[in-house]
Amino acid sequence: MEAVREKPMSTVEKAVAALRREFAESVLGVDEFRGQTQVILDRAALVPACTLLRDDGDLRFNRLSALTAVDYWPDEPRFAVAYQLYSLPNRTYFGLRVPLHGQSAELLTLQAVFPSADWPEREVYDMFGIKFLGHPDLRRLLMPHDWHGHPLRKDYPLGYEEVQFSFNHDEIDRRKPYARR
């Protein structure tokens, strides 16, 4: 084989390579879709992996852009917590994904690495019930403090109110709790 000049690795490729090197058994897969990369990590490796991605001189993923979760009920692993990291010097996005089982929906908080994970984690707890261990203030963020249930789970109903048409107008009118003075 001739020695051809290889194309320099992009930041995302370097990140994937670094993760595979340091956390070989925790990298459960690499998803590439429409030009965007998401590395599927085991939950034990999340905080060390993010620390590596943030501190490494080449990578410098110093911003947490997005933190959210997806519910795959009734499939297992039920939840997947998705992270989007951003590197200011290298101007790239990078995705991470941590699958969680429904019975043990717990994860270490990322606040130690990215303080801006505070409220997004509270929102994920509120909406999905995923607990973040080590979070200093894990309370409900968007729902009232005494609400039961986690709304964005797939087994939580939408809370749809029946629409009033002319055939059921009076019946629904009777049931509706109108306010008095």
Partner: peptide, 9 residues
């Protein structure tokens, strides 16, 4: 918004 979060009227 016909859902759990909004008072319907």
């Amino acid at each position: 918004f016909n859902n759990y979060a909004i008072v319907q009227g």
